[in-house]
Design a protein around this nucleic acid. Sequence first.
RNA 1: GCGCCUAUAGCUCAGGGGAUAGAGCGUUGGUCUCCGGAACCAAGCGCCCAGGUUCGAAUCCUGGUAGGCGCGCCA
Length: 561
Amino acid sequence: MTMDIKKMVLQALEQTLKDHWTDTEFTVEKPKNPDFGDYAIPCFHWAKSFKRSPQDIAQQLTPAIHHPLFSKVTAVGPYINVFLDKTYVSKEIIHQIITLKEAFGSNSDGQGSNVTIDLSAPNIAKPFSMGHLRSTVIGNAIANLAEKNGYTPIRINHLGDWGTQFGKLIVAYLKWGSEERVKEQPISELLSLYIKFHDEAEKHPELVDEGRRYFKMLEDGDPQTRYLWNWFREESLQEFFRIYDLLGVSFDHIQGEAFYNDKMDEVVEILNRKGLLELSEGALVVKLDEYDFPPCLIQKSDGATIYATRDLATALFRKRNFDFARSLYVVGSEQSLHFKQVKLALRKADFKWEHEMVHIPFGMMLQDGKKMSTRKGRIVLLEEVLNEAIDLAHQIISEKNPTLENKDEVAKQIGIGAVIFQDLKNFRTNDVDFSFEQMLNFDGETGPYLQYTHARCHSLLRKAGSFIPETSYPITEQEAWIIISHLTRFDEVVKQAWEDYDPSKIARYALDLARHFNSYYAKVRILDSEDRDARLSLVYAVATVIEECLRVLGIKSPPSM
RNA sequence: GCGCCUAUAGCUCAGGGGAUAGAGCGUUGGUCUCCGGAACCAAGCGCCCAGGUUCGAAUCCUGGUAGGCGCGCCA
């Protein structure tokens, strides 16, 4: 387990205050200006109760604060500024990183309990678009965060393989499709059938009813529709797994909506037994009037189920089978009403674990400021983008490092890394307007920048050959201390990122670390320095932490590129 | 109409009560006797509006304005 420096600082301060002060409430913050120390305590709030100026209070308290961690404590105006002992702290933190390696920053808060994570969930028979990238990479990073915080993540790909859309698709295939064409180009052919259906349905609305009827047949087990559905599903899965393989994402369970087909009667039965079902406009619903929410639809007027029913069945199944401590759903923000309704229906049915379910929303992937639409053919294919990024990485490698050995593999890692990082570096609920220009930018706040910094570290370590891990790093430069001080905050960031389900916190942390390191690198000689081993130890520490951040984000760190 | 989300630099975004509001892209200028220039340094540009809470508000509350999303048989 890692030493939590902030915790130690807090404890030291608390102890001092207990001896000198009746009011032990205080806050600690990080001064923006490093000249003001590593931690600061504002004294304003004591001013009122003690009827003294905050400046006075700071002056009086300062001499009382002692701890081996602190090299200096000063009163500056209304603040008490605390300076950490640089030698002590850097020795400690570098020692930790060298011994713990990739486990640095991990904690055991979750005590191994299960967290199910519903991620990716593409729709069968539709192409894997840029839009699906978000759920996949955000969900994957959150699963990694769960693990780093001591939970056991269970990645579930809840495929969109059920629902009225398949009725529609089957109708379209029977009317206009051909077996040869689907076999040749499965996804694009199925997509154009789907688009054609919606075009035709504008002129002939009765088609929609026919689609619903075919879905009902599918649900009832009609062999022909069942056969077609299964065929479409297999073709799609093959295509999806080619992409998951590129992205480096894998799943513990692939249980699409169809998996719950035989588990939905139970849901209806439970709700019925508890007297929650009401007939409304021909459909069965759970009313949520007391929460000021629209009703949750359980069964359509034709007797077929609907997505809320499937999500209820899914929730029950996951609770039984995985006994989750939390159940996360990484699904677009436009579905937040739906998840609230499902949870309220569970609450009314007295399933007390309902509060363990968390919807983790994210913003939309837009194109030219507008929503992408499969039906209107306005989509960007993920695979296309990935391939383009890989090509560009290839090109740059042949310019900058033509003798690199495993070019193909590295180009793949960089290209994919660029795309994943672009998606994860900002807070998830922001909408993102897709642009090739941004995706293919490898400068500045990007995945390749982090990978480059990491590779640079490894280049130094390679050139150095062997070195003695020097754990008492002599801090002579401000640049080195900024790195060390940043490293002490990693534990905190890992916890915060998990609590907020926010991978961008890790991404930002890594960017700051890389930037601090690159400044240091530009200013300080390493291999031909008297402090060579000590500096190499710091280089090793930086490389290790950047690599770990990237791993959590689902990005590879090639040692050279 | 109702509900949810968002508004910070030319652009994309961090910061979510505290000391001078930070990055990247783009622009301009610089660093090459260079351990990897996918880098570093510097210049420049500023919290949507109005009230309120507070010793202190970009940050919390209320009300506007603008945009996005959602609101029963799609998922």
